[in-house]
Design a binder for these strands. Structure first.
Length: 270
DNA sequence: CCCGGAAGCG
DNA sequence: CGCTTCCGGG
């Protein structure tokens, strides 16, 4: 005997027999498979550093790196060891923390990371720029590898409310319909001003039992696996990557750097 | 430690 | 493009 609405809510969406809490926690980060293809295989790109970091963080890789502090904050406990692991992954045997941290600093402009000042070896993910896939089912979508699952200290925020839906120890109540969808903003954005600084998520209209796949495809032009189509014209991962991270050189010549509120609350603000 | 410019590489 | 390497400066 179960509480109504707590179980079997989203079978069509891919969730079978999970409680609401389980669904809420079973948020998953998926990376495209090119991130794990060896560098020499055709059509592959190298793993990026932030992939690697999330991978280690998700595994609870003891010692070298771990979550700490606020949501999205992580501490590098053993910098040289982390650098060694990173160097092994990239085939750069002379990697060290000095070089790795330079790579991290390049993420500042791209707004993937920023530094939490005062705390040594402590950085913070800007999750509003990361592609997260709310994929509640166990098997990873075809073409993907599961790199992290389980409780995430991710500050997942619905685009409109700005309230955290799920985060680490303190889990907030969550609606019983699909939470978030991966949002890779299409290239011709109708209202760039309104979307500027928003989270790369779209929350569903609150239809219980709504079909995730339908919503994804209709609203976001992504395939069933949650990632965008490799459409003939410029809608592949290169463009996604550019539209999310690229082209943010941000010359502060005008002092017009003020971003629209929603992004600032997880980015610049403390 | 942390920051970013500069150059170079695949 | 996403680092890697190197480095002067704070």
């Amino acid at each position: 005997m179960t509480r109504d609405g707590e179980r079997r809510v989203m079978e069509r969406g891919g969730v079978v027999g999970l409680t609401r809490c389980e669904r809420m926690i079973r948020l998953t980060v998926l990376f495209p498979d090119w991130a794990y293809k060896p560098a020499w295989s055709p059509g592959s790109r190298q793993v990026q550093l932030w992939h690697f970091l999330l991978e280690l963080l998700g595994r609870g890789e003891g010692g070298a790196i771990g979550w700490g502090g606020e949501w999205g904050e992580f501490v590098i406990r053993d910098p040289e060891r982390l650098a060694r692991l990173w160097g092994e992954r990239k085939g750069k045997p002379h990697m060290n923390y000095d070089k790795l941290s330079r790579a991290l600093r390049y993420y500042y402009n791209k707004r993937i990371l920023h530094k939490t000042k005062g705390k040594r070896f402590t950085y913070k993910f800007n999750f509003s720029k990361l592609i997260l896939v709310n994929y509640p089912g166990h098997p990873a979508a075809p073409g993907h590898q599961l790199v992290q699952s389980g409780p995430l200290p991710f500050p997942l925020l619905p685009a409109e409310s700005g309230l955290p839906l799920c985060g680490g120890a303190a889990v907030q109540p969550v609606p019983s319909y699909p939470l978030l969808l991966p949002c890779c903003l299409p290239k011709p954005v109708p209202t760039p001003r309104a979307l500027h600084g928003h989270f790369p998520f779209i929350s569903t209209p609150g239809r219980p039992g709504a079909n995730l796949r339908e919503l994804r495809e209709s609203a976001l032009h992504v395939s069933a696996n949650g990632w965008p189509h490799k459409s003939p014209v410029g809608w592949d991962l290169n463009h996604i990557s550019r539209s999310l991270f690229g082209g943010v050189k941000q010359t502060e010549s005008q002092g017009e750097e003020r971003r629209a509120g929603s992004d600032a609350q997880m980015g610049e603000r403390e």
